[in-house]
Simulated scan of single mutants.
Amino acid sequence: MTQESDEVDRIVRAWTGQRPDLDFSPLEVLSRVGRLARHLDRARREAFRRSDLEPWEWDVLSALRRAGEPYQLSPKQLLQQTLVSSGTMTNRIDRLVGRRLVRREDDPADRRSILVTLTDDGRIRVDAAITRLVDAEAHLLARLSRSDRDRLAGLLRKLSMGFDA
């Protein structure tokens, strides 16, 4: 049984011919990861576009949606989940309030603080986007069996643990 060949195989064969002294196995893995990341980025942007959301809006709205009812978080909690600066988060919240996708509310536990709450329209958009995103990502992985997906997820988790620490 012959294994299928892809563009990365062609590139690695060419490099191996030119530089047989180097081990190109990292290129075989990470070049494919990079190519897949570009396909994933396009699929995500399309899913968000179809839900009339920008990727940064998705980041904030999905954090609120994942929080569960009443779909609210403090700006500090949003900062921790989206990894942006305080000024950037304030700007993002302002813009989302302007689009009526979130609203600011006084924090009943601390009158000096606010909570950011997902509106009904924000929830509808983020739910539509996650449905489209999951469908698009399933399509990208369609050539893999469930056990292959599980094995790949485990290997990628193992690899990423060293970077996330």
Rank of each mutant, 00 (worst) to 15 (best):
L27M: 08
L27E: 02
L30T: 04
L30K: 01
L30S: 07
S31V: 02
V33R: 00
V33I: 10
G34D: 06
A37P: 12
L40F: 14
L40C: 08
L40H: 05
L40A: 14
D41Y: 09
D41P: 00
D41H: 09
D41I: 04
A43K: 09
A43F: 13
A43V: 10
A43Q: 14
R44N: 14
R44H: 13
R45W: 08
R45L: 09
E46C: 04
E46F: 10
E46I: 13
E46P: 06
A47Q: 11
A47K: 12
F48V: 10
F48G: 04
R49N: 15
R49Q: 15
R50V: 06
P55Q: 11
P55Y: 10
W56I: 05
W56R: 14
E57M: 14
W58F: 15
D59A: 12
V60L: 13
V60S: 01
L61Y: 13
S62T: 00
A63F: 06
A63D: 02
L64A: 02
L64Q: 08
R65A: 14
R66W: 07
A67W: 06
G68S: 04
P70A: 01
P70T: 03
P70N: 03
Y71P: 00
Y71K: 02
Y71N: 14
Y71H: 15
Q72F: 06
P75L: 12
P75F: 09
P75E: 09
P75Y: 12
Q77S: 14
Q77V: 05
L78D: 07
L78C: 05
L78E: 06
Q81W: 07
T82L: 03
L83D: 14
V84D: 04
S85N: 08
S86L: 04
M89R: 06
M89D: 02
T90W: 03
T90H: 11
N91L: 07
N91I: 01
R92H: 11
L96C: 12
L96N: 12
L96I: 08
V97R: 03
V97Y: 01
R100C: 02
L101T: 01
L101H: 10
L101E: 01
V102I: 06
R103E: 14
R103W: 01
